[in-house]
Design a protein around this nucleic acid. Structure first.
Length: 887
RNA sequence: GGGCGGUUAGCUCAGCUGGUUCAGAGCACCUGCCUUACAAGCAGGGGGUCACUGGUUCGAAUCCAGUACCGCCCACCA
């Protein structure tokens, strides 16, 4: 790189360096004597493509991992993908459907062949995309949750918990889609307010022999077609209106089956009639009441949504047809009291838009009690910290109310549950079919392999991803508490930080903590940083259907990965949603260009080894060294609190404002006859040193441009990279230099203000009189404000403008006449403000209760304010007097 | 309905255990500049009753209570 273009072009640079890093194995980590710093990627769906949420998440991960690497740690970022059973299976189902094939037609094995094909074709695209973003993952360690070793870990874990007695088979209501003939997850159910009717039905009290008396009660229902499945009528035990029903039995209309009246707190007294018909087989809540009162469960609706023979009447009718017909029958039988219009939320299947039918089915569960307790303790004890902390509340609430985890899914894509059924319906749970056969033969020696039938269901995807921080290093460990962890696991576990979204705090984060505690005896990570959701400019969630999500690869193509990375991070604080606006990326691109051009300037400096250092340069160097050090300390502090965007903004301002606008302008050599004068060697060396420090500071966020410039700024050894250069240290403490320069820069700003107001060109040199015996950084002021500075005892006489820099009076001498009226008005306004301010301060100081109660430092400060404003008032008054005289 | 969080400049946010001249930052905006690194730039500037109402305090953006609105999670009432 010799001549630098005036504009930074990211494209060429980024591909070049990513390939170089890979070729030099810069991302690969092996256990060594250094301190490890580990992150496991939140595995994206294997067939997913990169969206803005991934960009945010993985940029944060990459910033943390690159920072750790430069801090001298052995940084390891393990990448990989998740098999995502539901998402992937439904994609494959859709693809087959387009070809007119249903998964039932081709069967399990054939379907899985298609699914693996799909995975081979689409899987890993997202990992390729992460490379474009600059992610420094250890690609040699790439894992997939359904690869053989990790699947084995999942199966072993299941067997382990089963043998421990924590996994059991139970019955649970699932969301049944009668059109697709499958259970769907809660996420796939859409609740829509739906107009229907509230049918008030009369149930007669039984005389004890199955004959109706003339007494009755009234229930209200939206589903009269289910009355044949009623198991009881339930009232609230506190409801006085229904005391007389205690112990009574009632008759189901039309079929005259006798059912009891029971009492349960669940029933709301002021809703409907206060009487609830309990239908355990077809309603979630009713099922729970049924459990509490040991009610029989009678299923009268089949998988297709039609009434079956257990309904006794209307057999074979569709549930909605049955509803219409039964209403008529009830009316004719005299059981219908009235019909009200009613709107209530009804669940619809996302895939078929069919009304969801709650259906009982056998599922596998993992007991949460002990695991949840352990996982709560991990966070409450602070062994794992949440950032921001507010998520602890949510977490605690969940952990304290954790229900057993339903781990079975009625899908094929995933780890198949290792339960093997014997012909008699009993079952054994073993890691392999062979082991299952042995176990089965121990029960019944005549069992043969073909007699065993493996459970059809697969395990919830989270049942594999909760092992991720363990299994990526040592897949043998989960399910084998006695297994001695291998070298990798011992070294890298526990990992350090996890970056993820708060939406999966329970699904994933909590469960990884459970698995970590159970199998490793300790937390899987020290910190969890929760990002927000990436939204569009006007706050809508990004979604494919809205089309408001940009393709990150297009953005990288247009602006460069560095620009996309810093653009995303500048406005993202932990836990807050990100309102994405392309303007942010443009800001990032502008920053790249600024860095680029500052280097063009620096690179162009020539050096004269015998030249003396200019006073302004000497001051600027001393100041910037101190400023850099202070800023490094501040940045470290931000990082330590995971205030990433603050850390970046701090570096951004240091680079742009302090280094470019102040430092470089202060040391910039003069031009003589159109030729830039050479710099002295001290200034030149310091300038390069500072530039390199800045590159290193910003490298974790902007890896490409920093590598490009870092390689050019000095001769590098073969294979040397900024990736392993060390983070700048805060090793210069010089508050005097910082304070002095700050005061000087205020003076410069004041003079510039005068110029701007009066339209005086920056090129016209002015005289600045300063009423003081000394002032800091005079050469810097003279250079940057383009003034000749004179220290004087008294001011006045010439034409010009007076300015105040804190408590120092200054005067800019002007050749043109000044508008006295304007000056006067401004001075009077300032005076008024100063007097009000003084009055406020004095009111405070004269308040005995203030002086008695406030700490000494605060009072001292008020006294300083008083003195400062007094001196300010004094000089303003003098100025006003003088202005009035000159009128 | 239950729980949690929020409300500070046009936008996105910072402001830690009340007290630095506390009302801030970035972007956007306005004005003037194509000044030998950068117009993706330089210099200057305007802009907020800190949601509302009360309380605690010598002192409140900051602590407390209530109200309004917004967001998220859970349950979505037969």
């Amino acid at each position: 790189m010799n001549e630098l273009a005036a504009k930074y072009s990211a494209k060429e640079v980024e591909d070049k360096w990513y390939a170089w890093w890979l070729a030099h194995k810069c991302f690969h980590s092996e256990p060594n004597e250094k301190q490890p710093y580990t992150i496991v990627i939140p595995p994206p769906n294997v067939t997913g493509i990169l969206h803005m949420g991934h960009v945010l998440n993985n940029t944060l991960n990459d910033v943390l991992i690159r920072k750790a690497r430069m801090d001298g740690k052995n940084a390891c970022w393990v990448p990989g993908t998740d098999h995502a059973s539901i998402a992937t299976e439904s994609k494959v189902v859709a693809k087959l459907k387009a070809q007119g094939i249903s998964k039932e037609d081709i069967g399990r094995e054939e379907f899985l062949r298609h699914a693996w094909e799909w995975k081979e074709e689409h899987g890993g695209i997202i990992l390729e995309q992460l490379r474009k973003l600059g992610c420094s993952c250890d690609w040699d360690r790439t894992r997939f949750t359904m690869e053989p070793e990790l699947s084995e870990a999942v199966i072993n874990t299941f067997v382990y918990f089963y043998k421990k007695g924590w996994i059991y088979k139970g019955v649970r209501m699932v969301n049944w889609d009668p059109v697709a003939l499958t259970a769907v997850s809660d996420d796939e159910v859409i609740h829509k307010d739906t107009k229907s009717h509230f049918y008030h039905l009369r149930y007669f009290i039984s005389d004890g022999n199955g004959k109706p008396t003339d007494k009755f009660l009234v229930i209200a229902t939206t589903r009269p077609e289910t009355i044949m499945a009623d198991a009881a009528i339930c009232v609230n035990p506190k409801d006085e209106r229904h005391f007389w029903l205690k112990g009574k039995k009632v008759l189901i209309p039309l079929i005259n089956r006798e059912i009891p009246v029971i009492e349960d707190d669940y029933v709301e007294m002021d809703f409907g009639t206060g009487c609830l018909k309990v239908t355990p087989a077809h309603d979630v809540h009713d099922y729970e009441i049924g459990l509490r009162h040991s009610l029989p469960v009678l299923e009268i609706i089949d998988d297709h949504g039609k009434l079956n023979e257990k309904a006794e009447i209307l057999v074979g009718e569709d549930r909605f047809v049955a509803r219409k017909k039964i209403v008529k029958m009830l009316e004719e039988a005299g059981n219908l009291v009235k019909v009200e219009d009613y709107t209530s939320p009804v669940g619809y299947s996302e895939r078929t838009d069919a009304v969801i039918e709650p259906k009982l089915s056998a599922q596998w569960f993992l007991k949460m009690e002990t695991l949840a307790k352990m996982a709560l303790e991990t966070v409450e004890s602070g062994r794992t910290k949440f950032i921001p902390e507010k998520y602890m509340n949510t977490y605690r609430h969940w952990m304290e109310n954790a229900r057993d985890w339903c781990i079975s899914r009625q899908l094929w894509w995933g780890q198949r549950i290792p339960a093997y059924y014997l012909p008699d319906g009993s079952y054994v749970v073993e890691p392999t079919a062979e082991a299952a056969l042995k176990a089965a033969q121990a029960i019944n020696p005549s069992i043969k392999a073909e007699d065993l039938r493996q459970d059809e269901d697969v395990l919830d995807t989270w049942f594999s991803s909760w092992l991720w921080p363990i299994s990526v290093f040592d897949p043998q460990k989960p399910g084998h508490p006695d297994h001695r962890p291998n070298k990798d696991l011992s070294y890298y576990y526990p990992t350090n930080d996890l970056v993820t979204g708060p939406d999966i705090i329970f699904f994933w984060v909590a469960r990884m903590i459970m698995a970590g505690e159970e199998f490793m005896g300790r937390e899987p990570f020290s910190n969890v940083y929760f990002t927000g959701i990436v939204r569009d400019k006007i706050g809508r969630k990004m979604s494919k259907t809205l089309g408001n999500s940009p393709n990150p690869l297009d953005l990288i193509q247009t602006y460069g990965a560095d620009a996309v990375r810093i653009g995303m991070l500048l406005c993202s604080s932990a836990g807050n949603d990100i309102f994405y606006d392309e303007a942010q990326i443009k800001q990032g691109a502008a920053f790249c260009n600024k860095i680029w051009n500052s280097y063009r300037l620096v690179k162009g400096f020539s050096v004269d080894p015998s030249a003396k250092q200019a006073p302004a340069a000497a001051e600027a160097v001393e100041w910037f060294r101190a400023k850099l050090s202070d800023t490094v300390a501040l940045v470290e502090d931000h990082y330590s609190k995971f205030r990433i965007s603050d850390a970046l903004m701090t570096i951004y301002k240091l680079f742009w404002d302090d280094y470019c606008s102040w430092y470089l302008e202060a040391i910039k050599p003069a031009f003589v006859d159109g030729v830039a004068q050479p710099l002295d060697k001290d200034t030149h060396a310091a300038t390069l040193e500072f530039f390199e420090a800045l590159l290193k500071l910003i490298h974790p966020v902007m890896p490409f441009i920093t590598e490009e410039l870092w390689q050019d700024i000095a001769e590098r050894r073969e294979g040397e990279t900024i990736m392993f250069a060390s983070t700048p240290k805060a090793d210069c403490n010089n508050p005097g230099a910082i304070a002095g320069f700050a005061l000087a820069s205020e003076a410069v700003n004041a003079v510039r203000g005068v110029r701007s107001q009066r339209n005086i060109s920056p090129r016209e040199q002015l005289v600045l009189k300063v009423k003081a015996s000394d002032f800091p950084c005079i050469p810097v002021i003279e250079k940057l404000a383009n003034v000749k500075l004179e220290l004087v005892n008294t001011l006045g006489g010439e034409q010009g403008v007076g300015i105040m820099v804190r408590t120092t009076e200054m005067f800019v001498v002007l050749s043109s006449s000044v508008n006295v009226e304007e000056e006067l008005a401004k001075a009077e306004k300032d005076l008024e403000y100063a007097q009000k301010f003084l009055a406020g301060v004095r009111a405070k100081l004269s308040n005995e209760r203030f002086t008695a109660n406030a700490p000494a430092a605060v009072i001292e400060n008020e006294r300083k304010k008083e003195a400062d404003s007094l001196s300010k008032i004094e000089s303003l008054e003098a100025k006003i007097k003088q202005l009035k005289n000159s009128k």
